Simulated assay, not measured.
Amino acid sequence: MEEVTRCNWANGDAVMMAYHDEEWCQPSYDDTYLFELLNLEGAQAGLSWRTILHKRAGYRDAFFQFDISACANLTDEELEEIISNGAIIRNKAKVKAVRTNAIAVQKVQEEFGSFANYMWHFTDELVIDHQLKEDSEMPSKDELSERVSKDMKKRGFKFVGPVIVYSYLQAIGVLNDHVKTCSFYKKGH
């Protein structure tokens, strides 16, 4: 059996390794999943991705498995209750951003037919393969994430700065930033 190699950031934690192996940089077109990852990336701001992944089940429970319509219809009272939930990061602005982002997603769905259509239109449906030789070559943001961030902010999304958006584009597979020596690097998708 061939030895599995991973991008360095994923090693040493079972949850991180599973996310890396099964999800990261895998193209997704599922609106609910895209919405979930958008909010988890926003929750990460100032924290580690490891922390967020370990609280993912709590987020799913708190936000109706990231059902977009249910999140868009959260009341102020429900949001306050969620903020007191120890299973998630209890940051008021980040929790309220889930409702705001759900409403923004619904508007995008009306305009583009789906949230996935919107996210993938920035690259004309193509995966951007950076062909990185090592983790240190990975930028924290780029021209694409700057452009997407600017457009998302204009549409009312929250916690969508260019650094968060870069990580998000990796998470949903628009960017392939697996290093070339990683067992999960696939050229040419």
Score class of each variant (00 low, 15 high):
S48K: 05
S48M: 04
R50H: 03
R50D: 09
T51P: 03
L53M: 12
H54Y: 11
A57Q: 12
A57T: 13
R60C: 02
D61I: 01
A62R: 09
A62P: 01
A62D: 11
F63L: 08
F63Q: 07
F64K: 14
F66Y: 15
I68W: 14
I68S: 09
A70G: 13
A70M: 14
C71G: 05
C71A: 10
A72P: 15
N73G: 03
T75P: 11
T75C: 13
E77W: 03
E77Y: 02
E78H: 10
E80C: 04
I83K: 15
A87L: 08
A87Q: 15
R90H: 09
K92F: 00
A93T: 12
A93W: 00
K94M: 02
V95C: 10
K96Q: 11
K96V: 12
A97N: 06
R99F: 03
T100K: 03
T100N: 08
N101T: 02
A102N: 07
Q106C: 09
V108Q: 02
V108G: 02
Q109T: 08
E111S: 08
F112Y: 15
S114D: 04
S114F: 11
F115R: 08
A116P: 04
Y118D: 02
M119R: 01
H121C: 13
F122V: 07
D124Y: 06
E125F: 08
L126T: 06
L126C: 13
I128D: 09
H130D: 08
L132F: 15
L132Y: 15
K133C: 06
E134Y: 05
D135I: 11
E137H: 03
S140C: 06
S140R: 09
K141G: 01
D142C: 07
E143V: 11
S145D: 08
E146N: 12
V148D: 07
D151N: 13
D151V: 06
D151S: 08
M152I: 05
M152Y: 00
K153A: 04
K154V: 00
F157G: 03
K158W: 00
F159V: 06
V160R: 02
V160W: 05
G161N: 14
P162N: 12
P162F: 12
I164W: 00
